[in-house]
Amino acid sequence: MQRVPLVDYLVLDDEPHLVAAECTGCGARYFDRRSACARCSGLAFRPVDVPTEGVLTTFTIVQFAAQGVEVPFVAGVVDCAGTSVKGNVVNTPPDPEHVTLGMRVRLTTVPVGTDASGVEAVGYGFEPVSDRADEHDH
């Protein structure tokens, strides 16, 4: 099935990852299209892969949202080795017992839906890195 990423900065290859636009002058990173760097006004950017694992530096559990937005969900920010990334925490119950400040998480993909011609849109989220997964990695 044909797939499209939810956002331009998500790359859906064998190892899905995020790509930031890095200012060649000062190293500031952005996920959206920029006219110039907000930090140094530089005009040149290069694509850089963002590490897929990081630490949850803040979160909220949204129970009340705009019409059509499924609740509850966990929104947060993940520090991926120095690059802050916005995203939902997924694959864990949305409560403060399971989602905690400083927990280790990693990027995963999340289905968004399929359009009329059968193209699937795929988004991303961050899931807890469990101890078992750690052992598996080693």
Binding site: T60, V69, G87
Partner: peptide
């Protein structure tokens, strides 16, 4: 909104 964080 709701897919990549929250806008509320």
């Amino acid at each position: 909104d709701g897919r990549v964080g929250t806008e509320t």
